[in-house]
């Protein structure tokens, strides 16, 4: 058990290493892809071809090389250009809805499909074995079921 835990921990550390060891320029490029360019409407800073955008990218690179973390760079950009500079909805408040809704739709769709498949395949199985479907409204207790069987047997015996 310990061995498995150790192996899995090592794996996760190895997989997380690129984030920890990312070069400042890679951090800057990544951030430029996560913010909207104040100079090209609807385009990320990374993709904006204007000179002003190139200058801002250079500033972000300089911050990254000076050892600033992602959060500090994002906060600085947000204080300069406002919250609309973020090209990724925050995972809190109203922004959370952006992330959660697709998952809810997928889960609802998967749940519905699974229910339908189960319902249909059960009906097909019953039809194949000749078993009559049990009406949803007819839910009997064990004693009621025994009484029903007895009375049906008595009825048949008449």
């Amino acid at each position: 058990m310990r061995k498995a835990l150790l192996v899995s921990l090592t794996c996760w550390i190895m997989l997380a290493m690129p984030w920890a060891l990312a070069a400042p320029e890679d951090v800057a490029n990544d951030i430029a892809g996560r913010v909207t360019s104040p100079f090209c409407p609807g385009v990320t800073l990374h993709d904006c071809p204007s000179q002003a955008a190139a200058d801002l990218r250079t500033r972000i690179s300089a911050w990254a090389e000076a050892g600033w973390g992602r959060n500090r760079i994002m906060a600085t950009l947000e204080s300069e250009y406002g919250p609309q500079i973020r090209a990724v909805p925050p995972a809190s408040g109203t922004g959370l809805v952006a992330w959660v809704l697709p998952v809810v739709v997928l889960a609802a769709g998967a749940g519905l499909a699974l229910t339908l498949i189960r319902h249909w395949s059960a009906a097909t199985r019953r039809a194949r074995t000749g078993e009559a479907p049990e009406p949803d409204s007819l839910s009997l207790s064990l004693s009621e079921r025994r009484r029903l069987d007895d009375e049906l047997a008595a009825f048949k015996g008449r």
């Binding site: 996560r34 973020r86 990724v88 909805p89 952006a98």
Partner: peptide, 9 residues
């Protein structure tokens, strides 16, 4: 607030 949703999302 006018937000935009970029490739990262």
């Amino acid at each position: 607030v006018r937000l935009s949703v970029g490739p990262a999302f």
